[in-house]
Nucleic acid binder design. Structure first.
Lengths: 156, 156
DNA sequence: ATGTATGCAAAGCGTTTGCATCATG
DNA sequence: CATGATGCAAACGCTTTGCATACAT
């Protein structure tokens, strides 16, 4: 994502208005490494604008996603998470507590042959790694059955 | 997933009961290549048991997923899809109509170094390709902005 | 006979939308 | 001043759950 000031300029250039609500949302997202959910962004922005509504947060997040300034992530917990880091990186997600670590790994080898792509025009590839984070490995109460929730290929 | 008969045996062995509802759900899923949603499974099973409830379908699908007999897929359309094919394969999803093609491509090169895995115990890797299916490439009404909805690394 | 599964309906959760009001450009 | 954004609350779609009844074992 661009910096807050650059985002404000971009919004104005597109005929969109820069409200205090939007500016604070930009600010909360700028450089945010925590992959926050909409609710988490809402909570953070409320520290600055207590009256902001959750709907405004959702609307602004969607605009940023549509503008290509924000990545929407599915971490498997049923809610969308948002990542302002547009650089080529992947995510390593804890299947138990949904903690996320950024991973930079070369996925250049992942190409589809013409037979494999079946006439699809390939637009992008999502690679997500699933595992147990250090903290959750300590916990004894993990049933161990939930890997299947993730539609995942077994680890090598 | 196992065959319907094998699934019935497995359920009984686990102390779970084999009802006509469950047997038909197994049957609809067995070898099903269509990555159906819960609603789609419900529709198909209703052809055999018109009185079955959607809740029963959801409950049985979840049991199968928990038993590791069914893969739950997120195709980006907001609902879960189910895949009885447990073999190592990936999915190529149309970002416009959510059509799905199975892809078998070697992801063995996707390994994380110890520094990359940050102490996580790696359980699996999800690779999903996004693109435009042949039919949707014909449509002119595609805004082309929605790639960002997918948290995706740009195509090579 | 025991205990689990079922159907139904309601609740739950994340997200979107309608509408009157407000404020940016 | 005109258009687009806001807040609120209601609606939404998917999924889960509570409960009384029915059925598999």
């Amino acid at each position: 994502m661009l910096t807050t000031e650059e985002m404000c300029r971009k919004f104005r250039a597109l005929g969109l208005k820069v409200t205090p609500q939007r500016r604070f949302i930009f600010q909360v997202l700028e450089g945010n490494p925590h992959h926050p959910s909409a609710e988490a962004v809402y909570a953070e922005v409320r520290a600055f604008i207590p009256e902001i509504s959750l709907a405004t947060v959702y609307n602004t997040l969607r605009e940023l996603v549509d503008l290509g300034e924000l990545r929407e992530l599915n971490l498997g917990d049923g809610k969308s998470h948002y990542d302002p880091d547009l650089s080529n990186h992947q995510h390593l997600v804890c299947v138990r507590c949904h903690a996320v670590a950024d991973v930079t790994c070369d996925i250049g080898g992942l190409t589809l042959t013409p037979e494999q792509s079946r006439g699809y025009r390939l637009l992008g590839t999502d690679v997500t790694f699933y595992g147990l984070c250090p903290a959750c490995q300590q916990q004894a109460d993990w049933p161990g059955q939930a890997l299947h929730l993730w539609g995942v290929s077994p680890a090598a």
